[in-house]
Amino acid sequence: MSQPVIEVNRVSKSFGGVVANHEISLEVPQGKITGLIGPNGSGKTTLFNSIVGYHPIDAGSIKFKGLEISELNVQKIARLGLVRTFQQTRIYGKLDCMQNMMISIPHRTAAWIDMFAKPSPKTQARAEQLLDFVGLYAKRRLLAGSLSFGQQKLLEFAMALMNEPEVLMLDEPTAGINPTLINGLIDRLRRANTEFGITMFIIEHNMRVIMNMADSIYCLAHGELLAHGSPEQIQNDQRVIDAYLGAH
């Protein structure tokens, strides 16, 4: 098994009195696609938010490439190469697609003077190439806000790739996308993993998608880790089936 790139160790998070995550431990191995599933309200998005520094955690430790990141803020973590997409797709609505891509270049090494740089032809070429990769090339000059929901989702994915992340955390990449397009999206996610070597950590509700794609899957229920294993193991795990059917 390859080296874990994200290590989550006994992380707890509660909002007011509601425990959203209770002592969750998991590992995301380098170069693989890892899935995170669980019924609604099981704490998947909370865990994502904890990892990317969106809110402080109550207890536990989160390591990225061996570096403790649970005290860092969102921007620093993103600059380390850990980038997430949002469940409610977020793009810059009043900029066109190309501009959306240009501003998504990695800011890891950005010095003060880089703020005033014009995007290089290389960057432009890469942006066009990635837009082509997700099938938005023809719409590259359209305002991002005028795209359909599915297209915005693709744009957000392309922006994330533009950021050259080491790990990409996707929050429900197929939610709201036309079922006929899902196969195309799965293919692109896979290619991003194999061709660009990006490790993926994916929350997904669509079982067919995640079982198809993931190398291993974690299942949460009621804020606790319920099961972990290969897609086959998870599919046949009675506890997971019970959790999804609402049994306790």
Binding site: V74, V83, R108, M159
Partner: peptide, 13 residues
């Protein structure tokens, strides 16, 4: 202006 949280999540300073 369009989405500061997104900008943060993308690592913009």
């Amino acid at each position: 202006r369009d989405d500061e949280e997104k900008a943060e999540a993308m690592g913009i300073h």
